[in-house]
């Protein structure tokens, strides 16, 4: 059977956690996946998985990366998954960490999106996917700058949806709740119950299904949907709950 040329996807932060699950899912569906990660050594290169090592919190490295990507074939899917958090009391975490966080979580995905679009490196019918957080609907004391970054990227995704539709690109934004990943483990209070968290593979399947159904707002799982609805209707209650459940139980700063 003569195969159509495979579709091409770009996934940032694909070495671990949700990014790894998203890349594996796409590869299993026959996509050619390019993974960008600072830990590119952790990626097992296969026929369909290629990696580029890049520290996405370094603007100079990002600029070089974009030049490299612009010289490649265009993409059918770009998933901005890479992100870091910083949990603890806002004033005790060194401010330098916040600069890196904001660069990685906000500025870099925005720049990559507009540069690839302007250079015609997003095919018509392509999907552009941003990863926000459930905290967009609930507030997140204990991760003030992280929640700022996730609100910024959510509203960026919402704002560019119509202008990008004109060049045939669909924009989606995902608001996942806590997942069973190393990163979530590191940033949660010590005795938090990890059993209720979603497996990254489950989340990846739900997310990709919604992306290809052209959904603009994606809340994977019933818990995420319920919590987001509560946050919209009763923001003061969720702010209070998040402070009690998370902020007052944080026993360490993690960044």
């Amino acid at each position: 059977m003569s195969a159509r040329p495979s579709k091409r996807a770009l996934v940032t932060g694909g070495a671990m956690g949700l990014g790894k699950a998203l890349s594996a899912n796409l590869a299993a569906q026959g996509w050619q996946v390019t993974i960008i990660d600072r830990d590119a050594t952790k990626i097992v290169e296969k026929d369909q998985l290629h990696s580029i090592k890049c520290d996405l919190s370094d603007p100079v490295a990002v600029d070089r990366l974009i030049e490299e990507l612009i010289n490649q074939d265009p993409f059918d899917s770009v998933i901005h998954n890479a992100a870091v958090s910083a949990t603890g009391r806002f004033e005790t975490i060194p401010v330098q960490k916040y600069h890196q966080l904001m660069q990685l979580n906000v500025t870099t995905p925005m720049i990559i999106s507009s540069r690839l679009a302007a250079a015609g490196r997003l095919n018509r019918g392509a999907h552009l996917v941003f990863l926000s957080s459930l905290s967009h609907f609930t507030g997140y004391p204990g991760a003030a700058v992280y929640s700022a970054s996730k609100d910024a990227i959510a509203v960026y995704a919402k704002s560019i949806r119509k202008p990008f539709a004109k060049i045939g690109v669909t924009v989606s934004c995902v608001f996942p709740g806590p997942m069973k990943t190393q990163q979530a483990e590191r940033h949660s209070p010590t005795n938090a119950d990890a059993e209720k968290r979603m497996q990254p593979e489950t989340a990846a399947a739900l997310i990709l299904k919604s992306v290809f159904a052209n959904r603009k707002t994606i809340l994977p799982g019933a818990n995420a949907k319920a919590f987001a609805a509560l946050g919209k209707v009763m923001p003061i209650v969720t702010d209070f709950a998040m402070r009690k459940i998370i902020y007052e139980k944080l026993d360490k700063d993690v960044y």
Binding site: A144, Y156, S159, Y247
Partner: peptide, 24 residues
């Protein structure tokens, strides 16, 4: 705001930041 995208994003971020900081 569609033709004011990064501005809108920055102000949304500021709101989220303030919301968390108010509790902290």
């Amino acid at each position: 705001a569609k033709n004011f995208s990064s501005y809108a994003a920055s102000k949304a971020g500021l709101h989220g930041f303030a919301r968390a900081l108010k509790e902290e």
